[in-house]
Write a protein that binds this DNA or RNA. Structure first.
Lengths: 240, 240
DNA sequence: CTAGGTGATACTAATATAGCAACGATCATT
DNA sequence: AATGATCGTTGCTATATTAGTATCACCTAG
């Protein structure tokens, strides 16, 4: 984290936002003890934070007393969407990129995950690409790799300390080598090891970089350069 | 507010979220004292909350030390957008409504304001309609009126206690009469008193209602019914 | 120079929160 | 049925954490 810790940081707010984000990124309703385990926070505390969020309307309790997003989440989405301004600038540019016939995506890094604002395979309507995917482990995603490469090695080490790294079975050194390569090239090219044998090409945008733009599909080595050029132009336009 | 206050509500989180929302809905960078005045909270407290948000990356300080949205706001937008699911469901439906040739909008109520997720006049690309407008006073907006009408009169009275009500110079009784009419009809039709002599037709969506869909433009009395039908069908499709 | 604005921090009082223990539900297994 | 292991939730109390005052340095306008 770049900004310094201030004189009297509000710990309740820090934990509260963490709880809110954990709630938002959970695809299914979750209970407080479950969420507490994910966050490594005392479950009673998480319970009270969730109840506070429920009071604000941001969270809501289902019939079986688990928690999920409430109506206030729409409000928060509208407000943060406007404040961020990212989609407003990016969407027209992203639509332009779809002419290549590949999947086009825009995402941001959160901890060791990538959260997608836009993710549209060819064929679907562009308007269906919004808020379609929640989270993916950063190391399984081109956008994740390119955004991780913006961090110092130390920070990445800290992030994956004592943990398995998806897609990098040999561990942290293998990941750091990949990140070094990405820094050198200025873009990420990763192979998706599923049945479809896809490749992803991704670049970062913003200064400092806080979002990534990517195209994925069947992309042979020779086709990489023009796609990178197009992505860079798009990133430049978005990042303004 | 519907949900009960729990045993130990976290006041720091409540004020922190209020600060976050006030920051997000401010079109320009703001200082902590200025924001404190808007929120009616002690300025030192707001300052510390802002610094905490800055530490989290959600806020950011400009060169002149004012605060504005930071990179973390993108993350929050992506997460809440996904969690809310509202745009994902609504956008394709909203695009369909544009065939009428009017401005199409989707918004949510926040305090006495309406925050827009989508607002697209005819002619512009649909993708430009996202996050385009921040806040409007609820009483100046068709969506605002229809969402206010979902509240009890008491709550509306509380909201506008000791305050001017935009568009309702005669005060609270005039507003309540309008809301009663909206409840009876099941939709809002309001006249926009600007140079263009526009009308807005709006309905609510969701159960309980937490968003509004509207069309605005030059809409004569006789054309209202089919538009309301189309809006209701759209609201039904969105609200699930 | 003053006057009034800003953001930021040290200090101390007091309050709001953390964490323990416990309760009633619910569910699966015995 | 009985058991045991979950779950969400709350009362309680010590104490960590926050609120609010006073104060600072900085800036701009007059």
């Amino acid at each position: 984290m770049r900004p310094k810790l201030n004189a009297q940081p509000n710990k309740s707010l820090i934990d509260g936002i963490a709880t809110l984000q954990a709630l938002a990124t959970s695809p299914d309703p979750v209970g407080s003890r479950e969420l507490a385990r994910r966050l490594n926070i005392d479950s009673v505390k998480v319970n009270r934070l969730l109840k506070t969020l429920a009071y604000l309307g941001i969270a809501r309790q289902t019939a079986d007393r688990k928690y999920t997003a409430g109506p206030g989440m729409h409000v928060l989405a509208a407000q943060s969407l406007f404040a961020s301004g990212l989609i407003r600038n990016a969407l027209p540019v992203l639509e332009g990129l779809r002419r290549f016939g590949h999947t086009v995506a825009l995402g941001v890094l959160w901890q060791d995950n990538v959260s997608y604002l836009f993710h549209a395979p060819p064929g679907i309507e562009a308007s269906r690409g919004l808020g379609r995917i929640g989270l993916l482990p950063a190391t399984t995603s081109g956008i994740g790799i390119v955004l991780l490469s913006e961090h110092e090695d130390d920070e990445v080490r800290e992030l994956y300390k004592d943990r398995e790294i998806p897609m990098f079975p040999e561990g942290i050194e293998q990941l750091l080598a990949k990140l070094a390569e990405v820094r050198r090239l200025g873009y990420a090219r990763v192979h998706v090891a599923d049945a479809r044998d896809h490749h992803v090409v991704a670049v970062s945008t913003g200064d400092p970089a806080h979002a990534g733009v990517a195209m994925s599909g069947w992309i042979p080595e020779a086709a990489t350069a023009p796609l990178v050029d197009a992505l860079r132009a798009a990133a430049n336009e978005i990042g303004g």
